[in-house]
């Protein structure tokens, strides 16, 4: 579904990604794990087109999207929920959500099963949103903001959803709530690519993990085997 082939990306003069390659298959939940500065968010922003890739290629469903603008990539069905949620604070929750729907490719919405709608999907994952959808997005708790950010990306009717730090800053009881939500999203046939600093949180839902360090892939495989690699163990456990 998504393939990154030896991509290199800079932030200003600093080279952040040093030839990253990844493959994500349809229906998978994949987590990119690493410490701060490892290149997780840079990888995500390179995929979504918010950062220009210097070299290498990114392809989505066989189409080269490396040089495409962010809005073209989003309309092709890649949703993005950033770590800081990125909600538009001058808009209500409902308006934040609607923006996704207005820019979704109608063909993908048409392909949804009979009786299935974007609202049904979102409210089945986060029914709480119904209760605060008229509220200004500034007046939300951290957990509510994350719910809206993920839901807004789901309103784009994506086939691939990128979620940066889904569990960061959440109370333990809420983490299990989000883990269940991500499993539900997976059951809808949406492929998930997550960026996580916390390995144990990532291993709650991920089928596979990529461990990054200093812009390079250090490990790729099942979460349960990751700690067998001494380099990964050293990085993730300090």
């Amino acid at each position: 579904m998504l393939a990154l082939d030896n991509i290199e990306t800079f932030r200003g003069p600093a080279k952040i990604l040093h030839g990253i390659s990844m493959k994500i298959e349809e229906g998978e939940v994949v987590a990119i794990v690493g410490r701060n500065g490892a290149g997780k968010i840079t990888t995500m922003e390179s995929i979504i087109g918010l950062l220009r890739v210097k070299s290498g290629q990114i392809s989505f469903r066989g189409e080269n999207i490396t040089r495409m603008s962010a809005h073209s990539i989003a309309r092709r069905g890649i949703g993005f929920s950033p770590g800081d949620c990125g909600l538009f604070s001058s808009l209500s929750v409902q308006e934040n959500l609607e923006i996704g729907r207005w820019h979704a490719d109608p063909k993908r919405i048409d392909k949804m099963a009979d009786g299935d709608t974007l609202e049904k999907r979102v409210y089945s994952v986060f029914p709480e949103i119904e209760g605060f959808k008229r509220r200004n997005s500034l007046k939300l708790s951290g957990g509510q903001r994350k719910m809206v950010a993920i839901s807004r990306a789901m309103y784009l009717c994506p086939s691939l959803l990128l979620i940066d730090e889904a569990f960061e800053g959440l109370a333990p009881v809420v983490i299990s709530r989000f883990r269940d939500a991500l499993k539900k999203i997976k059951e809808m046939g949406i492929t998930l690519l997550m960026a996580e600093s916390n390995f144990s949180n990532a291993s709650l839902v991920a089928d596979r993990v990529y461990v990054l360090d200093r812009g390079e892939v250090l490990y790729e495989g099942k979460p349960k085997d990751a700690m067998n690699d001494p380099r990964v163990k050293k990085i993730l456990q300090g």
Binding site: I48, G49, L50, S69, A70, H71, A74, R75, F80, P82, G86, F88, S89, S90, L91, E95, N96, E98, I99, G100, W102, H103, A104, R152, L156
Partner: peptide, 24 residues
Amino acid sequence: SRFGVVLRATSQDMRMASAMGINV
């Protein structure tokens, strides 16, 4: 209007707006 919502979103965060499919 729909355009107003898009306009306010873009004026606040043009990067996030483009990631939401808005042609900035």
